[in-house]
Design a protein around this nucleic acid. Structure first.
Lengths: 216, 216
DNA sequence: ACAAAAGTGTTATTTGTACACCCATGC
DNA sequence: GCATGGGTGTACAAATAACACTTTTGT
């Protein structure tokens, strides 16, 4: 990135996860020139003979510690002065990471609470806000929610996750009825451990059925 | 466009209209080098100090004969070899034109039936297909349909327009009940003229209420 | 025994769907 | 007077919303 070409394209990753009733966002402490020591979204320049899909793959590989699920294109950021040195147009992609991966230490990456973000480079704060709004409004099909939860989860955890994302409470009985009616959430034979009350059944999402459901 | 820069960005316009129970698409007979005398979507390169919004404005001005309504971003096309001479990444935008504007003659532009498209440059055929699918699936809020209809329309015309777009029939009584329940379609005092049967009431969309509805 | 969350069913309301006839007009 | 589309209501089914108590377990 020594000399800047006329116009660069990048894919920028808004990676969400979820824990303790809060949404988490993965940020990177950038170490290259114009943004050294500043927090921002991980991003990846689109190389000369690369399609966006290829670049998106690369970014997924770069973040493979977090085994992120496949991305969703949300929006494009193109203001001519958004990058201080070059003309950078960015495609914002949304990814999801399971909570256990958040434990994994990685130099220069850190998870932040959505509500406690530091000051970010370029328009990344806006991008994160837009990404959440995009998920809330454009996906009536909420199958990506299961990418934010552990492989085994209780129905209460699932409900809390929905409540956090959509910012509103759901009725316990109605919520369970509806979720179970979709048919892609199944009970495992395991139960919650180490809780000071009745142990909840752990459920899991049937991936094949989820995919079929998405196809609609 | 004599010499090609490393990477170019463009906004490409899928302009839809509607008449005689068919969806129409505006195409341009291109006259510049690599695409001379070939049909394709109208497009506009993103200039050096231009945001996409600016470029989109320009394209709207270029097509101002058709007084197209504000655009919706649909998808991005980025295959490295999609343009024969340069690396061109394109943002596909969807626009709408009212049917009376289709009468307006404009050299090198022509309206085609969606089902009778000629062979198109680059991936423009795919882009049109994707655009329609985008509208069908991602906008539960169908307020753009009114941009395809004349200012005054009968409820039967409205219903036919929905039927064409979504490719399925609706029940007359239920359709009317639902549409009227939204509250943004109002009857005018005018009636259809010159028909060999009872003249239908002409309705119009209340723009202010439409906007409020969109905000949800 | 008590605190804390799990789990479960019924009723009322709203929304969606199916369906058929009379009306006004131009020819 | 007849062909053509305009306009209207009702009954049933399905989905959604509101709501409270018993169970299990750890401390």
């Amino acid at each position: 990135m020594a000399n800047y070409p006329e116009l660069s394209l990048s894919v920028e990753a808004v990676v969400f996860s979820y824990a303790n009733k809060t949404i988490k966002v993965l940020l990177q402490l950038h170490d290259e020139k114009p943004f050294r020591d500043q927090w921002g979204l991980p991003f990846q320049l689109v190389k000369e003979n690369e399609s966006l899909e290829k670049t998106t793959d690369k970014i997924r590989q770069k973040l493979n510690k977090y085994s992120i699920a496949s991305g969703i294109q949300s929006s494009i950021y193109s203001h001519p002065k958004r990058h201080p040195k070059t003309r950078l147009v960015s495609i914002s992609m949304i990814f999801f990471a399971k909570p256990h991966t958040m434990e994994i230490a990685a130099p220069s990456y850190r998870w932040f609470d959505l509500n406690e973000l530091p000051s970010l480079i370029m328009d990344h704060s806006l991008q994160i806000k837009d990404a959440l709004k995009f998920l809330q409004t454009f996906t009536q099909n909420h199958t990506w929610v299961y990418d934010l939860l552990p492989d085994r989860f209780t129905l209460t955890q699932l409900q809390e996750c929905f409540e956090t994302i959509y910012g509103k409470p759901y009725d316990k009985r109605n919520f369970r009825k509806k979720i179970m009616s979709y048919g892609f959430i199944k009970p495992s034979r395991e139960k919650q451990k180490g809780v000071a009350h009745k142990a909840a059944t752990l459920y899991f999402a049937d991936k094949k059925k989820l995919e079929k459901f998405q196809a609609l």
